[in-house]
Every structure is written in C-alpha cells, then in structure tokens.
C-alpha cells in the first residue's frame, strides 16, 4: 500500500501537467476555429499538401 503515497501525489502532478498542456493549446488558438480543420479533410486541392512546407519556409 505504500506505493499509494507515491502514486497519489504523482497523479496530482500529472493533472497539473495536463492542465499546462491544455493552457498551451487554448492560448495558441487551437480551439478558435473548430470548423475549418474538420473540413480540410474533405479538401482534395493540391494546395493542402503544399501548405505545411510553405509555412516552415516563412
């Protein structure tokens, strides 16, 4: 049972880590436009494939 003394505090730390990741994802605007990225799956335009390298160049 002693392991619980390690695991419970660890779970607290883990949740705080998850909260931090969530903070990053919200602040970087990932939840601002929920429609567009879903629709982009349906986009068979070549431009979609070129987009990522294009942005890295910038």
């Amino acid at each position: 049972m002693d392991i619980v003394y390690l695991l419970v505090p660890l779970s607290v730390v883990l949740v705080f880590l998850i909260v931090a990741v969530f903070w990053w994802s919200v602040q970087s605007g990932q939840f601002d436009d929920l429609e567009r990225h879903g629709e982009s799956v349906l986009d068979d335009d070549e431009a979609g494939a070129r987009k990522a390298p294009g942005r890295d160049d910038a």
């Binding site: 982009s40 335009d45 431009a47 070129r50 942005r55 160049d57 910038a58």
Partner: peptide, 25 residues
C-alpha cells in the same frame, strides 16, 4: 470554406518573410 484559407496561405508562402493565419469562420 476551409479550402479558401489553404489557397491564401499557399499564396502568402511565396512572399518572403510573411506568414498568415486565416480564420475562415
């Protein structure tokens, strides 16, 4: 629609030093 954003981003990628973040909605 989403494809519009992709087109704009592809075009902007050719402008040196520029980046664009499009919100279609």
């Amino acid at each position: 629609c989403a494809a519009c954003a992709v087109k704009i981003e592809a075009q902007i990628a050719q402008v040196p030093g520029a980046r664009i973040d499009v919100n279609v909605a």
